[in-house]
Amino acid sequence: MTSILALHHVGVRFGDHMALVDVDVAIGPGERVALVGPSGAGKTTFLRLADRSVTPTSGTVATFGADRVPTGAADARAACRRVGTVHQHLHLVGPLRVVHNVNAGHLGRWTRRRALWSLVRPREVDAARAALDRLGIADKLGERTDRLSGGEQQRVALARLLVQDPELVLADEPVASLDPARAEEVMDLLCDVVAGRTRTLVVSLHDFDLARRRCDRLIGLRAGRVVFDAPAADVTDAMGHALYRIDR
C-alpha cells in the first residue's frame, strides 16, 4: 500500500533545540490520525513537515508516495494544492465576500486571469454554494466575511477546504480556542464532511479524549519523540497520563 505521508527517521533541529528526533511514521490513504502530546512536543513541526514549510535536518519526508522533492514551480504548485490546511485562526480575508473566500480554494488550480476575473464576476458559484450548503450556511454566500459570527467563519474556512478538495488535510489545534460543545461540533464537521472516508486527516489536538473518540489512530509525541503510535481503541488512559506527565 502506498502511503500518503511517510517520515523516515526524521530529525528536525532549530538552532540548539531538537524539535523532532528520529520520527518514523507512515500514514495511509483515508486514515484519521491525531497527534497528541504536551505543548512543545513537536506536533506543529510534524504538520509543517507535511506541508513542506519545514525541511528535515535528517531523514526524508515523502508525500503521496513520491519522496522526490518537487523541483519546478509548477511542480511545487501541484504538490501544494493536494495538501489542505485548517488554521486555528482561520486566516480568512475579512473584507472579501464569503464566495471569494470559498473560491480561494481554487487558487492553486486557477490561472491568474481566471482568479482575477472571478473577483469581478464570481466563477463556480454553484460549487461554492454546494460546499456552504453541506456546512449549513448556504445563505451567507454574498455576505462580507468579517460580518459573520466566529462559528460561521469557521464553516467558511472548512468550505474553502472542500472546494480545494485536497487529498491530505492538516489541522493544527483546530478547536483549541473553543468550548467543549463547539469543539465537538467543529470536529464533527472536520471528520465527517471535510475528511469524509476518502481523504487523509492529520490533526493535532490538546484534548486527549476528543482525539480518541474522533480519530482512528493516535500518535503520542513527547519532547520530539514518538512515545506511542496505536489504533485509537488500544490507547489507554494510563498512556495518556504518562504522555502529559510533568517531570520534576
Binding site: 485562526h89 471569494h100 480554494g105 491568474r112 482568479a115
Partner: peptide, 25 residues
C-alpha cells in the same frame, strides 16, 4: 498577512495572493 501566506501555501500564484488577500485587507 497570515491569510496571504495561507493562500500561497495552497498553491496560489503571487498575483492571486495579492488580489485575494493583500489588496482587500
Amino acid at each position: 498577512d497570515r491569510s496571504g501566506r495561507a493562500l500561497a501555501a495552497l498553491g496560489a500564484p503571487t498575483v492571486a495572493v495579492f488580489a485575494y488577500a493583500t489588496l482587500p485587507q
